[in-house]
Design a protein around this nucleic acid. Structure first.
Lengths: 334, 334
DNA sequence: CTGTTAGCGCATTCAC
DNA sequence: GTGAATGCGCTAACAG
């Protein structure tokens, strides 16, 4: 049976028969290679009628290019994981690639297995997010001339790969500069539990601008109310506080409850993506982090690489933006 | 040239030559089909030496099974997106499948293009998260006998597909029961900005247990301090408050700052995944939501389907757990 | 148990 | 421009 009208799987052969041309002409027409206008038209019509759907597996086998890229997370739950995925997938899909995604869930052995799998799938390129471990499979990728780029972070063997990582350096500098201009000489960095890279970077920017940094680490379970009653009540207390969004939020609530006016008595700055669904972020001054940019940059880096342009060993992508709002103002005069 | 030692791409043929057996025997050995112990050993050794890496594109072409599944998000940023991805990928990878992931970013036309692409990739199965739209491509999947399941939500043409969705019904009932037992007759549901499905479900559970539900909707930017000073100061105020984690957190801070004792004067319950990095969650009573379970269930449903067991039209996966901690106690006597 | 053989669907070379 | 023919790497009959 060779003339099925809408059977599940039609091949180039079926389309060719229907269009009255050769299978080669169909292939050319469907791939944009030069064919006569007449052939083109008949092929497209036939393909439509027969319900032709290209078989990318066959195409990959023949052309030695899978038009597929692999994305492996050492741990999906890491910061910026989703955003990176979102932006990266958009970027490469628009270029005609599909993305095979997988997570090692923090397991090094699993990570290796995944890399192996992607090698079998003949991915055209590989992204590793926060990769670590001594993966000797990396050598296979090298041998097969499959480009590999590390994103966010790359340790062990992966530190040899081109790395595209996020940075909030510029925004942090801007923030420090503004706070300085507003007269803030002492700024508190409120940290809760695990320390944040972002806050650390901001701390350095502040110091570079001659602002004294006071680290206000809450104990686990400690709450913002204590902070406002304790350290902030001292005469030489910071005139501005910087904290991750959720904490800044709580801080604002605590100040409000204690009758401490913001920003008249103290300025508050949140740090984060602003996607937490916290309505208060519209009012909170923010160092806004947009991880989406990172994904785009990572994808672009790979596409240029495939186009022949070898990437830099280290690329920093600025993902921060300073967004002043109502919670920051001039420092109160002592 | 047929004897390359570690050249980038060795084929079954190379391994066969090296092992001194036929290509078919190599295929069998590598796929776990019955071969003599001696053959098995020689093949494995040869494969190792030659650096053989299976070509899944060829395998797929020949066997008509790609061992690949597609996962399409209507919008990746939706609730539980990552968790679902994480758990789903683990489940199906352990079964030997790889996952092609993509996002429509809320664009219906893009969504259709993605489905088309996955059809070309000959995925063995398809997952659609929060799919909507009239996608007539769905018919192609049906015609090709490719199983499709909707996750979380499915509208339009996708409402015809088997749906696996999350539920916190049992946990909500448990919560309501406990609050009742503790003597809470009036409970406040604190909602900020967009309304939460979870809170709505909890509200119904409370009502079903004869608890009066008071909806305390904060305006955008309104903060918890006002809530504590206002509605909560009334004589017939709720004796317990339920809010999404971040809000509950702020609520706790506000109460603390206003000298309102928890849980003596008011009980507080957070609702959420507990993955926000908010240290206070260790102390806050929670209706813990674990979207991870959803992904596992979705993957399992598909695997059983492929194994022959048609899935139910609608499957609800309980993802809630009641975790009592220090912020809930007996209702104060008036 | 093993080897031989025949395609899977497609891109591409080489004649015309 | 077009068609016939070749083979990408592999699995699945089919004989031995």
């Amino acid at each position: 049976m060779s003339s099925r009208t809408t059977e599940s799987k039609a091949t180039l052969h079926d389309v060719a028969a229907r269009a009255g041309v050769s299978i080669a002409t169909v292939s050319r027409a469907l791939n944009g290679l030069p064919v006569s206008a007449k052939s083109m038209e008949r092929v497209q019509k036939a393909a439509q009628e027969v319900g032709y759907v290209a078989n990318l597996a066959a195409r990959a086998l023949r052309s030695e290019r899978s038009h597929t890229m692999g994305l492996v997370f050492f741990d999906l739950h890491s910061t910026m994981g989703v955003e990176l995925l979102d932006a990266l997938s958009e970027t490469i899909e628009d270029a005609g690639y599909s993305l095979l995604v997988s997570t090692a869930r923090g397991d090094t052995r699993r990570f290796d297995r995944l890399l192996r799998r992607l090698l079998e799938r003949r991915v055209d390129a590989l992204f590793c997010v926060q990769a670590r471990g001594q993966s000797e499979i990396l050598a296979r990728y090298h041998a097969a001339a499959i480009p590999v780029v590390a994103a966010i972070t790359g340790a062990g063997a992966f530190s040899e790969m081109p790395l595209v990582s996020p940075s909030i350096g510029e925004a942090a500098d801007t923030l420090a500069l503004r706070l300085r201009e507003l007269g803030h000489g002492v700024v508190g960095l409120v940290q809760r539990g695990a320390s944040s890279t972002f806050l650390a970077r901001i701390g350095r920017a502040l110091a570079a601008h001659d602002i004294r940094v006071e680290s206000l680490g809450c104990e686990d379970g400690g709450n913002m109310g204590e902070l406002v009653r304790g350290p902030m009540a001292r005469p030489d207390a910071p005139t501005a506080l910087i904290a991750l969004s959720a904490d800044a939020q709580a801080l604002l609530a605590a100040c409000d409850a204690r009758g401490m006016r913001v920003p008249d008595e103290v300025s508050i700055v949140g740090v984060g993506t602003g996607s937490g669904g916290l309505a208060g972020e519209r009012v909170l001054s923010h160092l806004l982090v947009d991880p989406h940019r990172l994904g785009g940059a990572v994808g672009m880096a790979m596409l240029s690489w495939l186009a022949g342009a070898a990437p830099a060993k280290r690329v920093a992508v600025e993902i921060g933006t300073w967004v002043p709002r109502a919670t920051t103002g001039r420092a109160p005069v002592a």
